[in-house]
Design a protein around this nucleic acid. Structure first.
Lengths: 122, 122
DNA sequence: CTTCAACCTGGAGCGCACTCCAGGTCAAGC
DNA sequence: GCTTGACCTGGAGTGCGCTCCAGGTTGAAG
């Protein structure tokens, strides 16, 4: 079950080894376990955090904001409302981002269509 | 009709004045007109280029690739096929990007749902 | 016991896309 | 004619998010 080597955690999360170390260094990840020899051991719980971070990064959340979220979570259950609000605000930004992306994608397709028949413009 | 001051071009394209100057400096924009006093004058044609660049940037195309596109366009009509292919490849990347964004958005919404009722996790 | 790939640390370096600055010029309105 | 705000240039600086490096350690396999 739990106990993944760094390379395995990297593989499963899609982050590089360097990025995992970096995330720990800046305090985004904390209390990552170690073997007696000093090597990191990632638990299932660490992994689920990483998958959340992957989601947040992929949707464009800045690292500083993920740090804020992680801090809140560490602070305890009483921050649940604030955490929810943070994710909600982010989700709304993502919606806007999706709308913009779709709109610009349509522009792009329109542009490509100009090349598709008689003779292209420009 | 044609002849926009830099600030107007910035307003219409959504790029900053500095970015417009930067784009000209790196050769993304070329042959931007000038007044006798040395000030830039943007034409409708320049504006439509800017709107294309806005579309490409918003969809994540790196500047180097936009430069390549602009160069091809300057080279003449015989590069139309290559230009089309470039845009087509980009559009496919955008599609992938939209799929990922939607997937991660769904994850995010799912995560938020955990906060919505009994007692949130983490 | 040896080997060797995976891991460790601290810190420097990088790529991208701007953004800002100093010091000067231009031109429309009063 | 003077003021003032928009504009000019070349070049330095910034913020973000990693990524790479040197030099050393660990531990499973043979």
């Amino acid at each position: 079950m739990s106990g993944y080597a760094p390379s395995e955690a990297a593989r499963r999360s899609g982050f590089s080894l360097d990025t995992l170390r970096y995330y720990e260094k800046i305090g985004l990840l904390s209390d990552i376990g170690r073997t007696s020899g000093g090597r990191r051991v990632f638990t299932d719980d660490d992994l689920s955090w990483l998958l959340l971070f992957r989601c947040l990064r992929d949707t464009g959340m800045p690292i500083a904001e993920m740090c804020r979220y992680a801090e809140l979570a560490r602070a305890g259950e009483h921050t649940a409302g604030e955490r929810q609000a943070l994710l909600e605000r982010h989700a709304e930004r993502v919606e806007e981002q999706m709308r913009l992306l779709r709109r610009q994608y349509d522009h792009l397709r329109e542009k490509i269509r100009f090349y598709e028949r008689p003779t292209g413009p420009e």
